[in-house]
Design a protein around this nucleic acid. Structure first.
Length: 238
DNA sequence: CGAGTTTGACCCGCGC
DNA sequence: GCGCGGGTCAAACTCG
């Protein structure tokens, strides 16, 4: 049983594997926008903690139930050997992926608890930014640091900037983005690291209620558990 | 002309 | 209660 969840044409499975993450968890640039870079293994734990509500497709599913080909793609992507021209045999066909720009970044820290984010931040408002919700400070929130020349990392989702603010004790402004998909309330805050401007500190808040606009996910249901897991993905043109 | 960005003003929570 | 600081709003602006 396969379900196509969104439409787009094919691309590298490696890209697919990376861009699989829901709330923008992949940190190499899509070929259409240039750049590259990836995460560490702790990344998965952080992602799982940050997206507990992911119903059928999530990092946990990928790590535990994804087919070997997909896991292999992740292994390659996560290794320090870089990600250029990753060819993943099997499920995803034989078309070689397009040349990938130089590896750009890696995640140094994944912080499910946003309170660890933004060392300059002070007080609950600074961290949570909650005015009208009753969520706890750690719900659906994840922060991490990525070395990147680009401030905004392409994660497959479409973001709309709604604010920019200079932060106390930091020479770098903080930018505020909202997922531009209608009905999706996911937000992210992006700022350069105060101590090392070559790093970008990103904090995601919320869970996307839709899949990445440029991705097809093929889901397979496990007969025993009834859970869905990712069996394959494709990407379309930008 | 529509979509996205910029930016100053405003709102709200927290600490003193 | 007041001031500070972060987060959001919304009008003006830019760009394709």
């Amino acid at each position: 049983m396969h379900m196509a969840l969104a439409s787009c044409s094919s691309l590298a499975a490696a890209d697919a594997a990376v861009r699989f993450f829901p709330a923008s968890m992949a940190y190499h640039r899509h070929p259409c926008s240039g750049g590259g870079g990836l995460s560490s293994s702790t990344f998965f734990g952080g992602a799982a903690a940050a997206f507990p509500q992911q119903p059928a497709f999530g990092p946990a599913d990928l790590g535990l139930a994804a087919p070997p080909q997909l896991r292999d793609a992740f292994e390659r992507l996560l290794s320090d050997e870089g990600v250029s021209s990753v060819a993943v045999p099997g499920t995803f066909g034989t078309t070689p992926p397009p040349p990938r720009p130089p590896r750009m970044s890696f995640v140094e820290q994944v912080v499910p608890d946003a309170s660890a984010y933004a060392h300059a931040s002070r007080g609950a408002t600074a961290v949570a930014g909650e005015r009208s919700t009753t969520r706890t400070a750690t719900d659906d929130r994840i922060a991490f640091r990525v070395r990147s020349e680009e401030e905004v990392l392409d994660d497959g989702y479409k973001w709309r900037k709604y604010g920019k603010k200079s932060v106390k004790n930091s020479p770098n402004p903080r930018n505020y983005y909202r997922c531009s998909t209608e009905g999706c309330n996911v937000k992210k805050r992006v700022e350069r690291d105060r101590d090392d401007p070559s790093y970008v500190v990103t904090m995601y808040e919320g869970v996307h209620n839709h899949v990445s606009p440029g991705t097809i996910y093929y889901a397979t249901q496990d007969a025993t558990s009834g859970r869905f897991f990712v069996a394959g993905m494709h990407f379309g043109p930008c």
